[in-house]
């Protein structure tokens, strides 16, 4: 693999990644990567099909951390080439992946690219406007269901009280059931003590 020419590398990538339209990739390619292969990929990258470029970049997520550290330079070089790709999807994805080889985290400050930046920034700004208008927190993050009161307040603040739809004039049957059950429970407990 290490001695492959550019054309071989791109054919190999095409066969591995370019045969389906589904962009979800399981990262099966990762086991065949090494520094040399990555350098070849960098050289042939501009001529790959868009689909193959995207899937190759997306497969980075599946590379084990120790390999990412080892191949950091090679991966960064591919990302550098990809950032200036003519397809906006490729350059946007590369921009998001820019910090990934070094830090393991995605870059969320998409600010460097003249072509991609306005699309990203406009979208974020327009939506931010709507997000700020959210008057009440209708939907809380899923983990909130698990939190003790104090922890919940520390995460999302005091919750607004809900709308009152009626006055309760009589407690429902479940209240009677509750006291019946508690009575039975203390009977059971005292029986246990006696025995």
């Amino acid at each position: 693999m290490a001695n492959m020419r550019d054309s071989d590398t791109s054919l190999w990538l095409h066969n591995k990644l370019g045969t389906s339209n589904d962009s979800w990739t399981g990262g099966s390619i990762c086991s065949q990567l090494n520094a040399e292969v990555l350098r070849n990929i960098k050289d042939c990258f501009p001529d790959l099909q868009t689909q193959v470029k995207l899937k190759l970049l997306l497969s980075f997520f599946h590379i084990p951390r120790r390999n990412i550290d080892e191949w950091r330079c090679e991966l960064e070089q591919i990302v550098d080439v990809a950032v200036s790709d003519s397809d906006l999807w490729v350059s946007m994805l590369a921009e998001a992946l820019k910090t990934f080889p070094a830090t393991g985290s995605l870059n969320t400050e998409i600010a460097d690219l003249d072509e991609v930046r306005p699309i990203f920034t406009n979208l974020v700004n327009d939506l931010r406007h709507l997000v700020k208008k959210q008057s009440e927190q209708v939907m809380l993050p899923m983990e909130c269901h698990y939190l003790n009161k104090a922890a919940l307040v520390s995460v999302v603040g005091q919750q607004p009280s809900s709308t009152k739809h009626f006055t309760l004039k009589k407690s429902p049957k479940s209240a009677i059931l509750r006291s019946d059950l508690l009575q039975k429970a203390s009977d059971a407990a005292s029986n246990l003590k006696k025995s």
């Binding site: 589904d22 962009s23 979800w24 990739t25 995207l54 899937k55 997306l58 999807w89 946007m92 994805l93 998001a96 995605l106 969320t108 998409i110 990203f120 979208l123 974020v124 939506l127 931010r128 709507l130 997000v131 700020k132 208008k133 959210q134 927190q137 209708v138 939907m139 809380l140 993050p141 909130c144 995460v155 999302v156």
Partner: peptide
């Protein structure tokens, strides 16, 4: 697709940092 997924999650992640309304985005 995975590319649409990454892109949208980055956008939503940025919006989730807003103090007001951010938790809905999360």
């Amino acid at each position: 697709g995975q590319h649409t997924y990454v892109y949208a999650q980055v956008i939503i992640h940025v919006l989730a940092r807003e103090n007001k309304g951010g938790s809905s985005m999360k």
